[in-house]
Computed example of a mutant assay.
Amino acid sequence: MADDVFSALSGDAGRLPRAASVVLVVIDGLGAIGLRAHAGHARNLTAQMTKRDVATSVFPSTTASALTSILTGVWPGEHGLMGYRVVDPDRDLLVNQLTGWESEGLDPATWQMAPTIFERAAATGHGAFAVGLAAYAQSGFTRATMRGAAFAAEARAADRVRLAYALAEQNAGSLVYCYLPEVDKAGHKHGMASTEWLAALEDVDAALSARVPSGVGVLVTSDHGMIDVPERRQIVLDEAHLTGIRHVGGEPRMIHAYLDPAADPEEVIARWRSDLAGLADVASRDEATAAGLFGPRVADAAAARIGDLLAVPRGNGAIYDGTAADQRGRGMVGQHGGLTPEERQVPLIGLGAFAH
């Protein structure tokens, strides 16, 4: 996607037509399947979406990994954000790659290892802007993934879209990123079957009905989709299941498990495969990287952050550490991170100069 955007800005032949400026809109948490299933609540977007207007997100299909891939143009194996929570191997400390940058001592300049699309834009003479919520302006995740962009904030989705369009129109040749997290937030808290999720979808769809300035190309996509996890599909690991495990990272739809140094890896993996038979797929770090799950190339520093074993629930299940002191995450309805089409198929819709 990144190469296509820069080809459109430079006028080179590519999959996108030439555009005076480009706006990249990311609707967090909106999968292509979920969007089409609720087309009546997103008539503007679905009216402009053909069967071919889809893309495939990365693995893990979670914001820390997938949004970083959108904003760098590379797989997690190259940028290094391998999931929601991973171990910092230098400190043997479990860190949150979305919200834990400051509290857990991650350096945004080095922990995220790839140049951003904004740095690339600036290096080739294009303006670079990011539009989001004010609360995110100085976060570690923003500083890691939006290096090189001038950040601007608006509270309402419609105002964020209007500002992004205005920046694109006023700054010829620019790349403008617009982030809309409302659908993801509603899905996590209430689920995709809720009136709150539908209202968030309608609000975002209305925001994107605004007129696109002449000559501006708009790409509307998402970092991942989502599925609802009912309470009966929660898989809770007790102390017996966790024997030999020193850290449980990742998230409920994609677990990174890190072994105690004295544990026998083959015994633990065999036990997890037996315990989770029919419920989840279990793989070692080497098996996952050899299968290309994190991309065709995995840097050594990124590989060191991957769990010794991974567990990906089948269907709409979710895995929880039942021994953890904080069990609030088990109240989350909408979830993502796994390999299902609902989580990995995302829309890729062109508006303005990119419309069909």
Rank of each mutant, 00 (worst) to 15 (best):
D286A: 15
A263K: 08
A42E: 01
G14I: 06
S284A: 12
Y165F: 15
H247Q: 12
Q112M: 14
L208F: 13
G105V: 07
F59W: 12
L242K: 10
T72D: 01
W272S: 09
A155V: 11
I227A: 04
R120A: 07
E287Q: 15
G173Y: 07
G225H: 00
Y136W: 11
E78G: 01
A325C: 06
M113A: 13
A193I: 05
G77L: 02
L67A: 12
G292Q: 06
V204E: 01
D275S: 15
L24Y: 07
M1H: 11
D92F: 10
H188D: 01
T124L: 13
G173F: 11
W101M: 12
Y177C: 08
T195M: 13
G173K: 07
M254S: 13
G352M: 06
L16P: 01
T46F: 12
H41W: 14
G295Q: 09
A55T: 06
Y165H: 14
A318D: 02
G295S: 05
S214A: 11
L9H: 06
R305N: 06
E182Q: 11
A153L: 08
R143A: 08
Q112A: 14
S10K: 11
A144E: 06
H256A: 02
V23E: 00
L98E: 03
K185Q: 09
A207L: 15
L242R: 00
A109M: 12
T195N: 09
A158Q: 02
L348K: 07
G278D: 06
D286R: 13
L133G: 02
K185F: 14
V183K: 04
P230S: 04
A325N: 12
G317M: 07
V204R: 04
L175C: 07
T323F: 09
V23D: 00
V74Q: 09
T46L: 09
M192Q: 14
G337E: 03
H224R: 05
Q327L: 11
A303C: 04
I117P: 04
E202Y: 14
G244I: 06
S61F: 11
A291C: 09
F129S: 00
A158I: 04
D238T: 02
M226Y: 06
A168R: 01
N44D: 05
D28E: 10
R120L: 12
R253W: 11
D107H: 10
G11D: 01
R297Q: 02
A257D: 02
A288W: 00
L208Y: 05
V5L: 15
D159N: 14
E267A: 15
P341E: 01
R147D: 05
L81F: 14
G307R: 08
A150W: 04
D281K: 07
A206R: 15
V248N: 08
D281R: 14
R162S: 11
L175S: 00
A123F: 06
Y177N: 03
P76S: 05
V282E: 02
A20D: 07
V23I: 04
G334C: 01
V212D: 00
A291N: 10
